[in-house]
Amino acid sequence: MRMETLLEVYKQSKYQVPGHGKRDFHVLKRVMEGMDGQQESDLYGKGKVIEDFQVKMSEYLGKESAVFFPSGTMAQQIALRIWCDQKGLKRVAYHPLCHLEIHEEDGLKELHHIEVILLADKSRVIELDDVIGLNKDIACLLLELPQREIGGQLPSYETLEAISAYCRDKGIRLHLDGARLFEILPYYKKSAAEICELFDSVYISFYKGIGGIAGAILAGEKDFTETSRVWKRRHGGDLISLYPYIISADYYFDMRVNKMEQYYEEAKELAAFYNQCDRVSTMPIVPVSNMFHVHFEAAKEKMETILTAISKETGIGLTGYVREVTKETSNYEVSVGDLYSQVPKGALKNVFQLLNEKMKEN
Rank of each mutant, 00 (worst) to 15 (best):
N258G: 09
G211M: 02
I240F: 11
I213R: 03
D200R: 06
V202R: 04
Y264W: 10
F199E: 05
E269H: 14
A249L: 04
F224Q: 04
T225S: 12
G215V: 01
I210D: 11
A219V: 04
S248M: 05
G209D: 14
P244M: 05
L218C: 02
I217R: 02
S228H: 00
Y203G: 14
A249K: 08
C196H: 04
Y252R: 09
S201K: 04
D200Q: 07
Y243N: 07
G209C: 09
G215K: 00
R256S: 03
S248A: 12
E269V: 12
E269I: 11
E261Y: 13
M260T: 15
Y264R: 11
I213Q: 06
Q262W: 12
G237E: 05
T227L: 14
K222V: 07
N258V: 10
K232T: 01
T227N: 15
L198R: 00
F206K: 11
G212R: 06
G215Y: 00
Q262T: 14
G211L: 01
K222Q: 13
G215S: 03
E269Y: 15
E221Q: 12
L242H: 00
K268R: 15
I204D: 09
Y264K: 11
D223F: 07
M255F: 13
I217G: 09
S248L: 08
G237L: 01
I240P: 02
I246A: 06
E226W: 06
K232N: 06
K259Y: 10
M260E: 11
Y207I: 07
L239M: 08
L239E: 11
A267H: 04
K208H: 11
G212M: 06
Y252K: 05
V230F: 14
E266A: 10
Y207D: 15
L239V: 05
P244Q: 01
S201E: 04
D238E: 15
I213Y: 02
G215F: 01
Y263N: 02
R256P: 01
T227Q: 15
G209E: 14
K259H: 11
I213V: 11
D223Q: 14
D200M: 10
I217H: 01
Y207T: 14
L239S: 11
V257K: 13
L270Q: 09
I246N: 01
E226C: 06
G212D: 06
G237I: 00
S228R: 03
E269P: 14
R229F: 00
